[in-house]
Computed example of a mutant assay.
Amino acid sequence: MTLLASHARTGVLARVNPVAKLGASALIAIPLVLSLDVVSAAVALALECVLFCFAGIGWREFWLRTWPVWLAAPLTALTIALYGEPSGTVYAEWFVVRISEGSLTLAAATFLRVLAVALPSVVLFVTVDPTDLADGLAQIVRLPARFVLGGLAGLRMVGLFLDDWRALELARRARGVADRGRLRRFLGMAFALLVLSIRRGAKLSTAMEARGFGAPGARTWARESRFGGREWMLLAIGLAISAAAVVAAVLAGTWNFILGPG
């Protein structure tokens, strides 16, 4: 949580309301979900790279945050290339593996699509403070306060969750019960942490109820969540990226509406 907070006020995009970041990510993802083609994903990814320059994070932070995406994208593409629906020229075939011109095209489109959908979500939310997000969801989106505050409290518990896991591991090692049986040790620690989390959640819910977090009627908020020109500009940029990707794919003749009959 401290890492999130350290970037909470840096960069142009960092000062934008988290609700706008959520909306921009959704606008970018919609056309990429509806179509599976190389052109739309490539155009969207290229335009997103320009947007990343204003996120206010360095290259080291960028790679540390996005490495799971860069790992998942080629693995997904490899699966499509080996086991995707064959079409066109078949280059290699063995048992259930069949590499063809069509499967390679789908693999390339899948690779770019995963990057174009996942990278904006990761980068835009690096600079999001959980409390700002909760304020925006409750005051702008008008989600129920009980749901928003419960989610915020749970998110704030992630740091304690990791601390508890390390404490349990050190305690088990001190007692000499964690030297072997890696799978058994993991299951035992997971069960102990589950019990501890349930107890902490029950205490936290009782404490929040006692402080009036579950009271009926409209509640007040310590900080006002504003939605102004910067937020509408980011939404417009997200819509422009989506429109450019769709137009480029249609003009290139590669638009492949995956929900269609064919």
Rank of each mutant, 00 (worst) to 15 (best):
E61I: 08
W59Y: 11
P31V: 07
V96W: 14
V148Y: 04
A41F: 02
G229H: 00
A174P: 01
W94D: 07
R113I: 04
L3F: 14
P86Q: 06
L45N: 05
A138V: 12
L82T: 02
S40G: 10
K203E: 09
R113M: 10
W63I: 12
G212D: 01
L104R: 05
S100R: 03
A240K: 04
A243G: 08
A24H: 11
L47R: 12
F257M: 11
A215G: 11
L235D: 01
A178Y: 03
A118I: 01
T206M: 13
E224N: 08
A153F: 06
R146W: 03
G201N: 14
G229C: 08
L27N: 10
P216M: 07
L160N: 14
T66Q: 07
L75K: 06
G151S: 06
A153G: 07
R211T: 07
W232P: 05
T131P: 04
M1I: 12
A44N: 00
W232R: 12
L155I: 10
F191Y: 14
V126Y: 10
S25C: 14
Y91A: 08
L124C: 02
A72E: 02
L22V: 13
F227V: 15
W221G: 11
T110L: 13
L51V: 13
P86H: 01
R230N: 15
V148I: 08
F257E: 09
V19Q: 12
F186R: 14
A192N: 08
I57A: 12
R65Y: 10
L160V: 14
A244K: 05
S35G: 09
L3A: 09
S35P: 05
E101L: 00
F186Q: 11
R60V: 10
I99K: 01
I241E: 03
E231P: 03
A249F: 06
G151D: 05
V69T: 13
R65W: 15
T79W: 11
R226D: 08
E231C: 09
E61M: 12
R185I: 15
R166D: 14
A92E: 07
S40N: 07
S6Y: 11
T76Q: 15
R219W: 11
R223S: 04
P18K: 02
L239I: 15
P86E: 00
V39C: 00
T254V: 02
A243T: 08
I57C: 05
G253L: 07
L193E: 14
A24N: 11
A108M: 08
A108F: 01
M189W: 09
C49K: 07
